[in-house]
Design a protein around this nucleic acid. Structure first.
Length: 977
RNA sequence: GCGGGGGUGCCCGAGCCAGGUUAAAGGGGGCGGACUCAAGAUCCGCUGGCGUUGGCCUGCCCGGGUUCGAAUCCCGGCCCCCGCACCA
């Protein structure tokens, strides 16, 4: 069992044969060492060979890789190994991603002694004594970088480690590369500035990222809302904050919290009543706010204001669910559609004292009646009322249920709700909420009734203790993804690329269209500073776009000890030259101190490897990283360097469920490697699924089983290679045909990265075919055929289970690494349709005899198989030919009968009805010689396996037997006696 | 709601685009047998129902349709998963 301790109960792995597993692991270590020693996967430019450049998106290194990471990266490795065997010069590099907030946030939590964070670290096997080191973000990067590399190596990935690197300023040459990229983008006018909402700490005057706040506030960000201004009869503006501005048409009162304090403030020249929080937030979102006084909520109750769109005179009423310190502190009441509002009104109706205590006459409610604005099929009456009653909401204080109710009504109405024409008129009536919402807002804003605003959906506190709010920062940098010309080039690139599976191509087109400008910088996260404005750091997705180009240079840049490159001298001219071919290498050499020859070598290296041939990724990156990958390539590089292919796969489920710690099926790669070893884990991962958006399924049973399967294959291969006899029989042709046909199929499946199909066709089915072959041959095999089988089977397995394949290859006397051995060519001359068909006649015959014998039960002494007369083959041939042209079987038969010589007509009539009863014989039709050969070759086998003597007799010799006359090509009669 | 992917036998899963060779590959699990002192491993068989000559019936989410023929094509419906953004 795993030595890794876990607080969560992990599933028990199915039992594995430890002896065999240990053998496999020893083999794995041996070959990993040899690969490394020989530099097998270190790929350098070689103009004499075609290149193939594959990449796996660098993982974020805040933990160890798990089976999900392992699933996708294995597909990259399988492709790399397959292509390598096909004769390509394959480059498979790997880097690590450290840019962004989570590592910084996690390190801070460790520093604060956050128990949850520490538990996470312990659960992945970090000893207590090591925990303090994780207070430092840099240690995380270093630690998990090593962990990833170790796991990937032990997994047997064929990576060129000389090109390894990690991101952020911690790696200066990479940082320079990123800065070069952004300089180029800026020069091309693809970077712009604008305002952008952020979570802001008013005390420390800084942006509050996830790492600046206690864990419970993580992930909460600014949300778009609208403030609608209701003019009070007291001359004040009542700013109602809402997520659903369209419902202002049904606002029948205003809510304030009578127990809270409000401010009177001059906002953009108008006098507003507003909560203190709202005033602060407004001031930070481009509004002038001057506080001029204070007012108690209770004083506001009973006043009147005008609904700005309907003109209704509506009262200000007390509600306790309103929070003065959130939003503006004032909300409009739409009791037909908002459960809180409905519940608030109900409370007032039920208990007149709630109004009386503010000196109000409960009759004030008479005019406050819900107005229905939106139709949704599910709700016949008032949606808010129905949901409130169904969920059993008791009062406005029943928060939990009201939240649920609000969520339900909101989402149903937003997506399915249709605006009532009698309220919304021609412009919006009859249309769906989500379609017109923006237009409604636009309209309200342009009429000066409303303003756009950002706020937080719930309070967020900064680490320093201060309450945060949303501020609009003005100098945020954006990538201009909305640029039509940029999009056009991206579409062009997508049109030319290869996608596996093909379905995702359209998805990329759609995504490119949908993208708007992207805020590409953050403050105080790990990353690379913006070159022209260094207080900003490039955000994580934005710095991971064209780094595959960096792999071609990393060999030089990451190894100053070997090439003597001075990082501090790297500049934009350097990258301009090596990546874009701009400028003069001589002057670049002077400026950077890099010899001209070396610069030219680097330029050549880039030109040799680029573009990326295939980037394989999980489907989770389709909507973000992979789009960026395309966008930035088309922006920066000439067309010949645009990406050539993207392969996508689903998640991997473990034992049929999404991997999660609570489900107990969260498995780290290192745990799997320890328990099953690399090859068996790889086998099970490859068997988990094919290309496509469907999720794969890693079954632990398969991994355990794979240990046996691989071990047995090793034993078989080693013990049987070179064994066998010299006899050449019909079944030998058959098995050879199957062998090469399988190879042909498998080659196609590898091209499409359908790894599961590879194993089904290329391993399980082939193994079963071999079993049949041996059985058919009475327990023997032909020496040459057996040799070919061992070789091809091992070669087929090599990309998936390379270690054991190497071991077998060596043990069977091959000198070269199997990893470097040519993928076998399909010998088409060996693929014989007729032979395979003839053998399937035997298979079918065998099964049929068994079935008949089972039913017969009583003693059978002899089985006679009736070989059909020759003319029947000719007849079937005629029928088959005509059937394929006419498409009608009956017509094909009657036409054929006409041609039969008169003496055979009666027999032909009987034959015709047999064909109609058994049309499958048309597909099994082979020449009489082939069928004869197959059947006579099978006699011995039939006799042995059925335990009854079997003879093959020509139809002509059994004229008196009615059953003999019904014998058909492809379906010889069986006579039991 | 929009966009994408799905729903296949005890479980997983191929097939579907290009309809027939499909009672439906392959794997897992289960059951039985051989071997063994025994367990494991391995090998063989069974794993929808009925049937004493290779057959019949039922069957691929549900309901219709096209066709000589549908798991596959068309129409309608139900259900599940993923994405809908400032970020790994």
């Amino acid at each position: 069992m795993s030595v890794i301790a876990s607080n969560n109960q992990r599933m028990k792995f199915p039992e594995v044969n430890a002896e065999r597993r240990d053998f496999l692991r020893k083999v794995e270590e041996k070959w990993q060492r040899r690969w490394e020693e020989s530099g097998l996967f270190e790929a350098d430019p070689d103009p004499s060979r075609p290149k193939f450049f594959v990449t796996f998106p660098y993982p974020y290194i805040n933990s160890f890789p798990h089976l999900g990471t392992a699933y996708t990266v294995l597909r990259v490795d399988i492709l790399a190994r397959f292509k390598r065997m096909q004769g390509f010069n394959v480059l498979f590099p790997q880097g690590w991603h450290a840019t962004g907030g989570p590592i910084v946030a996690a390190a801070l939590r460790v520093r604060e002694g956050d128990e949850k964070q520490i538990r996470i670290l312990k659960s992945i096997g970090i000893p207590d004594s090591e925990i303090p080191k994780f207070r430092d973000p840099e240690y995380w990067v270093e630690f998990f970088r090593k962990g990833f590399k170790q796991d990937f190596s032990r997994y047997g990935l064929s990576i060129d480690w000389r090109r390894e690197f990690f991101t952020t300023y911690l790696n200066p040459p990479y940082s320079k590369f990123i800065q070069w990229q952004y300089t180029v983008l800026r020069e091309k006018g693809l970077i712009t500035r604008g305002s952008h909402p952020v979570v802001w700490c008013p005390k420390e005057h800084k942006v509050v990222g996830d790492h600046d706040r206690p864990d419970e506030y993580a992930g909460i960000g600014p949300e778009r809302v609208v403030i609608i201004k209701f003019k009070g009869e007291d001359g004040l503006v009542y700013p109602c904050l809402t997520y659903r501005p369209e419902t202002v048409y049904g606002a029948v009162n205003i809510w304030v919290n009578p127990e809270s304090k409000y401010l009177v403030a001059e906002v953009d020249g108008e006098k507003w009543v507003i909560g203190e929080y709202g005033a602060r937030e407004l001031a930070d979102q481009d509004h002038s706010v001057k506080i001029v006084g204070e007012v108690k909520g209770s004083e506001l109750v009973g006043r009147f204001a005008r609904n700005p769109v309907t003109g209704w005179r509506i009262p200000v009423l007390p509600a306790y669910f309103v929070q003065a310190d959130a939003g503006t502190g004032i909300v409009m009441s739409v009791p037909a559609h908002a459960p809180y509002d409905f519940a608030g009104l109900e409370d007032l109706k039920k208990d007149p004292y709630l109004l009386e205590k503010f000196g109000l006459d409960p009759a004030i409610l008479d005019a406050v009646r819900p107005v229905k604005l939106i139709d949704v099929e599910e709700y016949g009456g008032l949606p808010a009322e129905e949901v409130v009653r169904r969920l059993g909401v008791t009062s406005q204080f029943d928060r939990e249920k009201l939240e649920e109710a609000t969520k339900e009504v909101y989402s149903k109405e937003f997506y399915k709700g249709v605006l009532k024409p009698e309220v919304f008129g021609e412009r919006w009536g009859g249309r769906k909420v989500f379609e017109v919402k923006e237009d409604v807002v636009e309209n309200l804003v342009s009429r000066g009734i409303a303003l756009r605003h950002y706020t937080l959906p719930s309070p967020v506190y900064c680490r320093c203790g201060a309450r945060t709010h949303v501020k609009l920062v003005k100098d945020q940098w954006f990538l201009r993804y909305s640029d039509p010309e940029w999009k056009r080039r991206a579409h062009e690139c997508i049109d030319r690329m290869r996608f596996v599976p093909e379905e995702v191509r359209q998805e990329f087109h759609r995504l490119v269209d949908w993208y708007e400008d992207w805020a590409c910088t953050h403050e105080r996260e790990l990353g690379t500073p913006l070159p022209w404005d260094e207080r900003w750091v490039l955000e994580s997705l934005s710095d991971s776009t064209i780094y595959m180009a960096y792999y071609t240079l990393a060999k030089y840049l990451q190894h100053p000890e070997k090439y003597g490159i001075d990082w501090s001298k790297l500049n934009n001219e350097f990258f301009d030259y090596v990546l874009l071919g701009k400028g003069d290498p001589g002057s670049v050499a002077e400026r950077t101190g890099i010899p001209k020859e070396l610069l030219e070598e680097m330029r050549k290296e880039f030109l040799y490897w680029y573009p990326v041939d295939m980037r394989v990724s999980g489907k989770d990156l389709i909507g973000n990283h992979l789009v960026f990958f395309i966008m930035h390539h088309v922006a920066i590089f000439p067309e010949e360097h645009w990406p050539r292919g993207i392969g996508v796969n689903g998640w991997v489920l473990v034992a049929g469920k999404k991997m999660s710690k609570s489900a107990g099926n969260f498995i780290l790669l290192r745990e799997a490697l320890e328990y099953w070893g690399a090859d068996a884990t790889r086998f099970a991962e490859a068997y988990a699924g094919n290309s496509g958006l469907d999720d794969g399924n890693f079954e632990p049973e398969v991994a355990s089983k794979a240990v046996d399967l691989l071990y047995e294959w090793y034993e078989f291969a080693v013990n049987n290679y070179g064994k066998g006899d010299e006899n050449r029989r019909f079944v030998d042709d058959w098995f050879e045909s199957v062998l090469y046909r399988t190879l042909e199929k498998v080659t196609k499946e590898y091209e499409e990265l359908n790894t599961k199909n590879v194993l089904v066709e290329g391993f399980f089915n082939l193994q079963n075919a071999y079993r049949w072959y041996v059985k058919r041959r009475g327990g023997t095999a032909n020496k040459e055929v057996l040799k070919k089988f061992v070789e091809i089977q091992t070669l087929i397995l090599a990309p998936i289970t390379p270690h054991i394949a190497e071991e077998i290859w060596e043990a069977t006397g091959h000198k070269e690494f199997i990893s470097r051995t040519s993928w076998p060519a399909v010998d088409k001359s060996k693929i014989k349709d007729e032979v395979e068909k003839a053998e399937s006649i035997v298979v079918k015959l065998y099964e049929d005899i068994q079935e008949v014998l089972k039913l017969k039960k009583s003693g059978v002494e002899r089985i006679t198989i009736v070989a059909p007369s020759k003319w029947k083959y000719g007849f079937l041939e005629g029928v088959k030919r005509r059937y394929s042209t006419y498409g009608k079987l009956s017509q094909a038969i009657s036409e054929t009968i006409k041609e039969v010589e008169p003496s055979l007509k009666p027999a032909a009539g009987q034959l015709a009805s047999l064909i109609q009863k058994n049309p499958e014989v048309l597909d099994l039709l082979v020449s009489p010689e082939a069928e004869q050969k197959a059947l006579s070759d099978a006699l011995e086998f039939l006799k042995d396996s059925l335990g009854v003597p079997v003879e093959l007799v020509a139809e002509e010799e059994l004229r008196e037997n009615p059953r003999a006359r019904t014998t058909l090509p492809g379906r010889p009669s069986i006579i039991l006696s």
